[in-house]
């Protein structure tokens, strides 16, 4: 059992100091994940992370330790992002971004990657981020996203292919 899981157990028994330590330990990772999901919108990502921590505090007694605390928190954060995206129809932004990609062809590879990830579907972006940058197994990522394992693997494969296609096209653009 990790330190975070022990802290979560203490927090579930009403220890606020233990939850405070969990916030300090996990805020960076959750905010970074949500920034990627929110396509770099730091203010939105921080608002969602704040809401996710409040929800985690309310539901801490439901944390059973079946997965890690980090993955449980990521699940809450991802679900918060999805709710926000549905409410504000964020996916419809994809089309407008798509039209302007040619002007960004000269960007650095890392920036290109962020730009490409911002253009793919939310679920594919989350799957790639969780499995590659965050280092979760496919099973953990599927649990975080609340989708079947097969669907997760499909998102990873297709998302990776879409990103690869975009990066190749941008490289070839003079």
């Amino acid at each position: 059992m990790s330190d975070s899981d022990r802290l979560a157990q203490n927090a579930a028994q009403g220890n606020v100091a233990a939850f405070a330590e969990l916030v300090r330990l996990h805020q960076g990772k959750l905010r970074a994940f949500l920034r990627r999901m929110a396509r770099g919108d730091a203010a939105l990502a921080d608002d969602l992370a704040q809401e996710a921590f409040l929800e985690a505090y309310r539901k801490i007694a439901q944390f059973r330790g079946e997965g890690s605390f980090a993955s449980w928190l990521a699940q809450i954060g991802y679900s918060r992002y999805l709710m926000y995206a549905r409410k504000h129809k964020l996916e419809s932004l994809d089309d407008s971004i798509e039209q302007s990609h040619g002007t960004e062809a000269a960007l650095h590879a890392k920036l290109d990657l962020e730009a490409a990830l911002a253009r793919i579907h939310t679920a594919k972006r989350a799957a790639l981020t969780l499995c590659f940058a965050e280092g979760y197994s496919h099973e953990e990522a599927a649990r975080i996203m609340n989708i079947p394992l097969g669907t997760l693997k499909s998102h990873v494969l297709r998302g990776r292919e879409e990103v690869r296609t975009m990066l190749t096209a941008w490289k070839e653009t003079p």
Binding site: R31, A42, K110, L113, F132, A133, E134, G135
Partner: peptide, 9 residues
């Protein structure tokens, strides 16, 4: 590239 850890704020 994808495996690079996210920069934590």
């Amino acid at each position: 590239l994808l495996s690079q850890p996210l920069e934590e704020p």
